[in-house]
Amino acid sequence: MSFLVLKKIGDAQKKKAIVDVRSGDTVKVTQKIKEGEKFRLQVFEGVVIRVDRKESHTARIVVRKIASGIGVEKSFLMHSPLVEKVEIVKRAKVRRNNLSYLRNRSGKSARLVAKDFDRVAVNTLKEDVAAEAPAEAPVEAEKTEEVAAA
């Protein structure tokens, strides 16, 4: 019983639609940063080395980049209100979910083999498709009313 209550609370915290991010993707994560009373947007671009709990409201990705020769990793909660947008730039062929071995590599050995993908289709949120579907439903309802009247 309490599990159902917790599930409802967790589902209420979820965003309506998020991008399907996988390990090996190069992503741009736009995050809100609060400085004093103001908010600004900061972009963090890097390789996703881990995806956790994809279907949960606690879905998380770990993104790694090299900044000034030093590896920097940042963890982002996908459903957090501070994560404004996640955009997939490149997709690579990988055979595991946790790419922690990239931490020990540098230079050419840290490269991943790129894979062709449709960047526009992948970055389009499924929320847009859901918004179009209800627009068609009233038209069908009108047709059934006309048939019932005849």
Rank of each mutant, 00 (worst) to 15 (best):
K65A: 09
Q42F: 15
D52I: 06
F39G: 04
K65I: 04
A67Y: 06
L41T: 04
G46R: 04
V21I: 15
V29E: 02
I49W: 09
I33S: 14
G46S: 09
V62W: 11
D25K: 04
G46Q: 08
R22Y: 11
V21T: 14
F44Y: 15
R22E: 07
E35T: 12
H57C: 01
R64L: 05
D20P: 10
I18T: 07
E45P: 07
Q42V: 15
K65D: 12
E55M: 04
D52C: 07
R60F: 00
D52R: 06
V21Y: 09
V27Q: 13
Q42C: 14
R50P: 04
S68D: 12
V29Q: 02
R50K: 11
T30S: 14
R50A: 11
D20I: 09
I49R: 15
G69D: 07
T26A: 04
Q42D: 15
V51N: 00
T58G: 04
V43Y: 09
H57D: 00
E37G: 00
K34S: 09
R53M: 01
D52A: 07
D20V: 06
D25I: 07
V27L: 13
K28S: 08
K38C: 01
G36V: 03
V51F: 00
R53G: 01
I33C: 10
K34R: 14
D52H: 10
K32V: 03
G69Q: 12
I70G: 02
K32I: 06
V48N: 12
Q31V: 15
Q31C: 14
T58M: 08
G24P: 05
E35P: 04
K32Y: 11
S68H: 09
K38M: 03
H57S: 03
A59Y: 03
T30P: 05
V27M: 15
D20W: 06
G24M: 03
I70R: 10
I49P: 14
S68N: 13
D25S: 08
K28P: 01
V63H: 05
V62R: 08
R40V: 12
K32A: 05
H57I: 00
T30E: 11
R50W: 08
L41F: 11
A67H: 12
V29G: 03
I33E: 14
K65Y: 04
V43N: 15
V63N: 02
I61P: 04
V29W: 05
K54I: 03
A67E: 12
G24K: 00
S23C: 08
E45I: 08
V47P: 10
A67L: 12
K34N: 09
G36E: 01
Q31F: 15
R40S: 12
Q42W: 14
V47N: 13
Q42N: 15
V47D: 02
K34Y: 08
K34D: 03
I18K: 05
G69F: 14
I66Y: 06
L41I: 07
Q42L: 13
K32S: 02
K65R: 15
V48A: 10
G46W: 08
G24W: 01
I33P: 08
S23K: 02
G69P: 14
V51Q: 00
